[in-house]
Amino acid sequence: MNPWIAIGALAVVSVGIPVAMMAVSSLLRPSVPEQGKSAVYESGEIPTGTTRIRFNIQYYMVALLFVVFDIETVLIFPWTVIYRPALEGGASMTEVLAPMLVFIGVLVVGLVWAWRQGAVQWVSSPRALEEKTEANQ
């Protein structure tokens, strides 16, 4: 049997079971809507402001780096699969290992550059730094 039929079947089941649980729950649970209940939880306070704001995520550069390294792992996958068969097939170690070392080396140089630029760390927002220094004074 094609394995992807089985995986497709599990996809059906893994959506079906949660949906079935939701259906059972909707039969069991009460519904007593009240205004206070549906208020967004902010530790018991009345919610202030909106959540839909522009927010500094502070790891923008890291997210960009992730894209680079994620593609790199995709390219490493096939190399790891053929590595041992190629060696056993008579290829010399420099032939199979050296190109990958160069490839990883190029990316490591990039990572070192990003590290020195301060890209791989949590960026404190200027406002937070300002508040900190004011508190220190």
């Binding site: 996809a11 893994s14 959506v15 079971i17 949660p18 949906v19 649980m21 059972v24 729950s25 909707s26 069991l28 649970r29 009460p30 519904s31 007593v32 209940k37 549906s38 208020a39 967004v40 939880y41 909106t50 959540t51």
Partner: peptide
Amino acid sequence: LSKELIVPEGADRPAWDIAPLIVAGS
């Protein structure tokens, strides 16, 4: 399962309902 389902004000409805399915299903 028999607890009341409380929908928060201003919830982005289809996404709010689908998210648990994705977490459990994946």
